[in-house]
């Protein structure tokens, strides 16, 4: 622990919670650039907070029409392949959340009208966690999850 870090943490506490200050503070200058990119959602430390700032609601309904394809055991948390497929009609967006990461929201994909509810990506996972896919359809949120065991975390620090 060096001195500058201590000072920084103290300053952060004065503003609000550490996590929000760190995320919000560092991201603030570029916030103007991409209007849709929500720093509050990506800096949120709980799934509920992330969803609320992303979609306005945090209530999700478990759905069998969403399939999350992820490994049972990920040896390297820095690269975990995830596939999400949904047959829900009128799917507007697919968000990927990892509850045990420092900031659960990993990515949000806004689907075009002709785009299938099908996404593949690779994410970092700090430790063993569920991978939660949240699909927005007709103003409601539907979710599905898959547990992934991580043997080596991938968020650094």
């Amino acid at each position: 622990m060096n001195q500058s870090r201590r000072t920084f943490l103290k300053a952060s506490l004065a503003v609000g919670t550490v996590a929000i200050a760190v995320g919000g503070g560092l991201l603030a200058p570029s916030r103007v650039m991409a209007a849709q990119w929500s720093s509050a959602a990506f800096a949120a430390t709980s799934m509920e907070a992330a969803l609320t700032s992303l979609e306005g609601i945090s209530k999700t309904e478990a759905s069998a029409a969403i399939k999350v394809d992820a490994p049972d055991i990920a040896e390297n948390g820095a690269v975990v392949s995830i596939g999400i497929e949904t047959s829900l009609s009128g799917a507007e967006s697919i968000s990927v959340l990892i509850p045990n990461n420092a900031s659960p929201l990993a990515a949000k994909y806004v689907l075009g009208k002709d785009t299938d509810g099908f996404i593949n990506l690779r994410v970092k996972m700090r430790k063993t966690s569920d991978v939660v896919a949240v699909v927005k359809s007709n103003g409601k949120l539907f979710s599905a999850k898959k547990a992934v065991k991580v043997t080596l975390g991938g968020c650094g620090g």
Binding site: A34, Q36, W37, S38, F42, A78, V79, V80, S81, I98, N101, S103, L105, A106, A107, K108, Y109, V110, L111, G112, D114, T115, I119, N120, L121, R122, V123, K124, M125, G154, C155
Partner: peptide, 16 residues
């Protein structure tokens, strides 16, 4: 057709 919003949890050299 697709608009992706990514956070830092997306892996290095992102694949999609």
């Amino acid at each position: 057709v697709l608009n992706c919003l990514w956070g830092t949890a997306v892996s290095k050299n992102p694949f999609m």
